[in-house]
Every structure is written in C-alpha cells, then in structure tokens.
C-alpha cells in the first residue's frame, strides 16, 4: 500500500472545480478544501509507486493547479540489495568507451 498526503494550491475561485477534477482521478480522495487560501488536502492511494507518481503528474497537469506539494509518504520498503556486481558493470571487456566516441 502506497499512501501520500498532498497539498494542492489553486486560485480561490477554482477550488471547487479543482476538487471535482481531483475526485475523478482514480485513488484520489479530497479530504479538505479551503477557499480563502486556495488549498486542497488530498490523499492518494496507489497500488504501485509508479501509479502514485502518475497521479502526481496528473494533478500537476490539471487546469488551474498552481502548486503541488507532497507532505507525507507512507511506504512498504523494499530494501532488498543484490550483493553482487551490478549488471551494468558485468561483462565489460577491456576498455569501455562507447562506440560512438571513436568517430
């Protein structure tokens, strides 16, 4: 489960419209709005962290959104480390200069 607490800022006159638009994004829940300050509090739930980031980008792309600030990130960690040479360094033979450097 990936949950994020997000603060969205818009012009006061657009708070309602932005709130409606946010509610239409999957996994997004608008908890609070404040017309005076143009602030909205949103919690996003995403199945994957990739979907979480797509969500941020969709918020940012909404009309009239001026700023998107992320406040709290709750995650199930994946600290698995591979105790071996990374693939990127494996199998390099001798001098590793990208071919196009030798033009």
């Amino acid at each position: 489960m990936n949950l994020s607490g997000i603060a969205v800022t818009t012009h006061p006159e657009w708070v309602e419209q932005v709130a409606n638009a946010l509610s239409e994004i999957e996994g997004m829940e608008v908890f609070q709005t404040d017309i005076a300050s143009g602030k909205l509090v949103v919690v996003q739930e995403a199945a994957s962290v990739g979907a979480e980031v797509e969500g941020f980008n969709r918020i940012r792309a909404l009309p009239h959104v001026m700023a998107v600030d992320l406040v709290q990130h709750y995650f199930e960690h994946d600290n698995e480390l591979i105790d071996a040479i990374p693939d990127e360094l494996n199998g390099l033979e001798g001098i590793h200069v990208p071919a196009e450097l030798k033009d």
Binding site: M1, L3, S4, G5, I6, A7, E29, F31, Q32, D34, S37, K39, V41, V42, V43, E45, D69, V71, Q72, Y74
Partner: peptide
C-alpha cells in the same frame, strides 16, 4: 484501518498547510 491511516495522513497534511 485503511481509512484510519488515510485520515491520519490527511490530518498531517492539513495541519501543515494551516487548515
């Protein structure tokens, strides 16, 4: 439990932006 966690995160977020 999930709603509880979510309202906790919303509360932290709201208090930060002064709501």
């Amino acid at each position: 439990r999930r709603e509880f966690i979510k309202s906790g995160i919303a509360a932290s977020t709201a208090s930060l932006v002064g709501l």
